[in-house]
């Protein structure tokens, strides 16, 4: 059983994807053509990108509930600033502002010792309020159509969000698995005491992680804004749940220390497949909410099962 669970952690998501693919290929003829598949992957890329950041946060032993508000903040800053500052300037300022919010999250959590739950929940409300303040509660239309080139175009027949996802995946993968910093993130989440005793600056590491989460959310905010050509202060309500679900479903354990970015990448696509499947059924959007919630509980169930099993094995004296 433990072996199965360990295996699941590594390849469980692929089994789910294969199963979902077979199912969709049977029920939907459209699923067999490339553009549909690319469409599904593109829809999955938004959640996946933020979930890369979230995976880092969970690996470091925390999490961030403020990501959807960061997307909204990014969106309104860009919409408000584009007329005066142009594309580059507005995007940079939006991203810097988002990273600043991540910095505050990190400082409150590491320096003030406030729990990630309270900190990021409060940040979520504060940022949403701030975004609404910036636009006065309106949605702001962006008149520069060229801005669409950022997120609503194709490159070599591949939608650009997929390109961004792949690039960011590579970057985050390298950070987490190949750099000393990434390994120190895992160390902080795996055994904080030992990490501190080994001379690591755990506070700094965690703070940077929260900045990276905000950065990933901000990037998706840019992409979504470019596609919609509207600055939306309340962008993507409920998206935080999607992101957490993707990270956990991908096999990243809530216990910290073990981040699985490959799993995250494919879990993002899997969630998108669920949406696609539900769309085929022409059900209302609420069913999608329900489906994501249930998927999360399923992923948690597996995670919980694994922890339980390890505990029983320990009591019985079984080496695992």
């Amino acid at each position: 059983m433990v072996k199965f669970l360990k295996l699941y952690e590594k390849i469980g998501i692929f089994i789910l994807i294969v199963a979902a693919s077979i199912f969709l290929a049977i029920v939907s003829p459209n699923f067999r053509n490339l553009s549909t598949i690319l469409g599904i992957i593109m829809q999955g890329s938004y959640g996946a990108i933020i979930a890369f950041g979230m995976t880092l946060a969970i690996t470091s032993g925390g999490f961030d509930l403020s990501v959807e508000a960061v997307m909204g903040l990014t969106s309104v800053i860009i919409a408000m600033l584009i007329p005066t500052m142009g594309f580059a300037g507005s995007i940079i300022i939006a991203i810097v502002a988002s990273c600043f919010a991540g910095l505050i999250n990190g400082l409150l959590i590491t320096k003030m010792g406030i729990s990630p739950l309270i900190t990021t929940l409060a940040m979520q409300v504060i940022l949403r309020g701030a975004s609404l303040l910036i636009t006065g509660g309106r949605q702001v239309v962006i008149s520069q159509k060229a801005f669409m080139s950022i997120g609503a175009t194709e490159f070599l027949h591949i939608p650009t969000p997929i390109i961004y996802m792949i690039v960011l995946f590579i970057i985050f993968y390298i950070i987490l698995n190949m750099t000393a910093f990434g390994r120190h993130i895992a160390a902080s989440g795996s055994n904080e005491q030992a990490a501190k005793m080994s001379g690591l600056n755990v506070s700094l590491i965690k703070t940077i992680v929260y900045i990276l989460v905000a950065l990933s959310a901000s990037i998706v905010g840019v992409i979504r804004t470019s596609q919609a050509l509207i600055g939306i202060p309340t962008m993507a309500p409920g998206f935080t749940l999607n992101v957490l679900t993707i990270a956990i479903l991908g096999g990243t354990s809530l216990a910290g220390g073990r981040g699985n970015l490959i799993g995250t990448l494919f879990a993002g696509i899997f969630i998108s497949m669920i949406y696609y499947g539900l769309n085929l059924l022409h059900v209302q959007i609420f069913y999608q909410m329900l489906a994501v919630g249930i998927t999360l509980l399923f992923a948690l169930f597996i995670d919980g099962l694994r922890n339980r099993y390890l505990e029983t094995a320990r009591i019985r004296g079984i080496r695992v």
Binding site: F63, L241, L254, M289, L296, L297, L300, F301, G304, N307
Partner: peptide, 17 residues
């Protein structure tokens, strides 16, 4: 299931809604 309360109830938040 020994799942942290925050994430369980976050999931439930969406399911209930």
């Amino acid at each position: 299931l020994k799942i942290p309360a925050f994430i369980t109830t976050l999931g439930m938040m969406f399911i209930f809604r």
